[in-house]
Design a protein around this nucleic acid. Structure first.
Lengths: 348, 348
DNA sequence: CGTGCGACTGCAAACGTTTGCAGCAGAAAT
DNA sequence: ATTTCTGCTGCAAACGTTTGCAGTCGCACG
């Protein structure tokens, strides 16, 4: 029913190849014929069939973007940045949600493989070997994960976790909990590694809880456990969990930051809107989205660009952290808490 | 480089059509040959090329889903519900973000047209006529909008707005503001229509502000104007704006709900987590996602199913609304405020 | 013993494009 | 006047599948 290249050819009295060229290589066709063809195409409502074109050129001008959970506010800035970057290069982004499920991830890679020119995997939960294997099927760029031989863009959450722990110990906290994220998360491992190391250096006690679902409820569910544990500060896998935890603590009568300090990671918009405003580690999500698209596209040109981009993170101090029991200024002295805005904060 | 049907055929000593049938109509091929073919395919890592298949069958087993702003927490539940519903029927969902831009919307419809079996348009900003025209190119289902001749699933926000206004006037508010959403939004028009009518019925004054960007900052930017206007209650186009507004009012020293009551629409997760918890109109987003997929898919079977599904909304009373100056119990009497949980609340 | 049937497989034409090659005009160069 | 070139166009073979049709074979049926 929809007009094909053949209809246009017939209507304008030229061969289909001329019509084809009118769209894909206009300079090769006589301006006069070209405008005639264009007129007919317009009139018939002709649109080149991208599937057919892809079949022969091998390029779809689509990029797939897989995220673990589209409801996690961490992703949208990344998605949007990737989208606008792709649009500039005349590409489209297809987003899919994997539900944090490795099996779904694999299935989706296969399903998408032939419909995109490449795939961006955000914090995939699959095994390294599987990712490596899949990368032979379709160009891959991983985000927030390192797998040997594959181009990657990672955010330096290790550094961020270190800053967070140092911030807490500096405030006089000695008993700190780290509430971990989902199983199989590279980010999770990085955070833990760095946090453990930083705590040891500062001579503080660090208890690690997890794995947990990386959501508000995941955080909320840990409130009771945190209260009982007697820690005075918590570093959460992400802002969502931190916010959930604060909510949970609040309903248990535990005050943040007076009784316990909480630090998140990601700096999602929401973190500026809850009360207390969340102290958190800002991750450059938009920059990551752009970088990933760039890598994928240049990766297409000259193969074997297995470069790896690392983006810095920074600590944003707001209102959810305060002085601990060993604070130099003494406990309960609010003045020892760093006021909002002390740390330089630049959106990405 | 990737194995094709021909490679498999050669390896297993059968014709390509047999290989094809092994995958698309297994019952037509001898179990013995079938397993041999499957073995070869497995060994060669063969995957049917979906683009090629789509070219000839006309079915891609993909569904496109266009949303105005993926960062708006209103959408994820809808997206996830659509995805799981689609997965059950062996379809995949591609999500795209249109940036609230009608031009992008149109371009995306064209780009997606041949790569999906149908498109779900969430709150599109395009003109009715354009949508109608595009629907000849690819099956369309619209969500939160009504365009004649097209299948649609809408949430009854009009009813919700009426409930909200009645709630406010019931609390003794006579001067109410409606802060509107984006230009071209059907939802926005519905809300306004219903709110104006409900206010008139209750003999209250309703001032309409807008259009505005439907985001936190959109709400935040209106705080000063609201303060000056002297209204004692506000109904916002969505929760995001309501939350932004509350934040803005707070920094101006205006207390919610003591000084002004605020009601949102959507009941996003966030609304339960901010302080004060938001009174809002819950919209059945997940149900909408499922319904839309269902309509699209059955629409594919027997054409001309231009049915329209309307989903009910309900008011969820929390902590952001309180008694107004004309409260029957007198102003400032907190007891007159409906406590959290008074209204029955069922997630979708 | 012929006929028909069922199960299986091969053949070849499609689907809507792109693209290397060749042809053909006319203009420019020799 | 012949050659070379340039600008444009047509021809036909691909791309990787699906699918109607026809053919083969063995077997049961009458």
């Amino acid at each position: 029913m929809p007009a094909t290249i053949r209809d246009v050819a017939r209507a304008s009295g030229v061969h289909i190849s001329t019509v084809s060229r009118t769209f894909s290589a206009p300079h090769l066709v006589n301006p006069e014929t070209r405008s005639r063809v264009l007129a007919c195409a317009e009139h018939l409502g002709y649109r080149p069939n991208r599937a057919a074109r892809a079949l022969i050129t091998g390029r779809t001008h689509n990029i797939g973007l897989m995220v673990a959970d589209i409801a996690n506010p961490f992703f949208p800035p990344l998605i949007k940045a990737a989208e606008s970057q792709a649009r500039h290069r005349d590409y489209h982004i297809f987003v899919t949600d994997t539900n944090e499920d490795p099996a779904v991830e694999e299935e989706l890679v296969h399903a998408l493989a032939k419909q995109v020119d490449g795939l961006l995997l955000c914090s995939p939960r699959m095994s390294n070997s599987l990712i490596e294997q899949l990368s032979r099927e379709v160009p891959l760029v991983v985000i927030n994960r390192q797998v040997t031989g594959l181009p990657a863009v990672v955010m330096d959450v290790g550094q961020g976790a270190r800053l967070a722990i140092e911030h807490l110990t500096g405030l006089g906290h000695r008993d700190i909990a780290l509430i971990g994220g989902p199983r199989g998360s590279w980010t999770n491992r990085e955070i833990r590694r760095a946090a453990v190391h930083a705590a040891r250096t500062a001579d503080a006690e660090l208890t690690v809880l997890g794995p947990n679902p990386p959501t508000e409820v995941g955080g909320l569910a840990l409130a009771e456990q945190i209260r009982r544990s007697g820690v005075t500060a918590v570093l959460a896998y992400n802002d969502l969990m931190a916010i959930g935890l604060i909510e949970g603590l609040d309903s248990l009568g535990v005050r943040v930051p007076q009784d316990v300090s909480v630090v998140g990671i990601d700096d999602i918009v929401l973190s500026r809107l809850t009360r207390p405003k969340l102290t958190t580690v800002a991750t450059p999500t938009a920059a990551a989205g752009r970088a990933a698209v760039d890598m994928l596209l240049q990766h297409g040109d000259d193969r074997r660009t297995t470069a790896q981009v690392t983006l810095q993170t920074e600590l944003v101090i707001r209102d959810s952290t305060g002085p601990g029991p060993h604070s130099p200024a003494g406990p309960g002295n609010a003045a020892a808490a760093a006021p909002d805005g002390v740390a330089s904060y630049a959106k990405e």
